[in-house]
């Protein structure tokens, strides 16, 4: 139980190493070991989507992965999203979109929505409202009724297309 494994991974373009118990979740590793607390844990069952991150470019639930499974992986969390903006922009257009349209209230689910949106707009730069809603079903929000979140994704899509 107490054997520890050495792991290393690249998170937000920085290389990290760690010595972890095999049962430690990736979400807990990011939060408690690396101090990247922007990734939130809302259910530990993969339902709410608050802990969504990018693992090797794909969205995954970091609560359903063990840290040891991410050994050698490249990860992007909410803290690394701004760096994906065009150089000179302090925030990524998706972040700007959520601010512009007020696509958040309490902010707890917001990082997960941003990561989902990041992957989505790369795949589908001109989504319809229906397509946006469909993709966002994997993330739960209890505050906004999704109204302004859908608008935020539309805002960001438009801004990204204009680049």
């Amino acid at each position: 139980m107490t054997t520890h494994c050495a792991i290393e991974m690249t998170v937000n373009d920085k290389r990290y190493t760690g010595l972890v118990e095999p049962r430690l979740s990736l979400a807990d590793f990011l939060r408690d070991h690396l101090g990247l607390t922007g990734t939130h844990v809302g259910c530990e069952q993969g339902i709410c989507g608050s802990c969504t991150i990018l693992l090797n470019g794909e969205t995954v639930r970091s609560c359903l992965l063990f840290a040891v499974q991410a050994h050698g992986a490249t990860i992007v969390t909410i803290e690394g999203l701004a760096a994906k903006a065009k150089s000179g922009d302090r925030l990524h257009p998706i972040q700007q979109g959520f601010l512009e349209t007020v696509g958040f209230q309490c902010g707890f689910c917001t990082p997960g929505f941003l990561m989902t949106t990041y992957e989505f707009l790369q795949e589908n730069p001109s989504p319809s409202e229906e397509e946006i809603r469909e993709r966002l079903t994997g993330n739960l929000c209890r505050c906004t009724g999704y109204q302004n979140i859908v608008a935020a994704v539309q805002w960001a899509a438009e801004r990204l297309r204009a680049r």
Partner: peptide, 20 residues
Amino acid sequence: GQSLVPLLNLRLTKPKILVD
């Protein structure tokens, strides 16, 4: 792990060994 890990997180199943 999308079905098994939720059960582990809830401590509903407690295998001694996990073979990944």
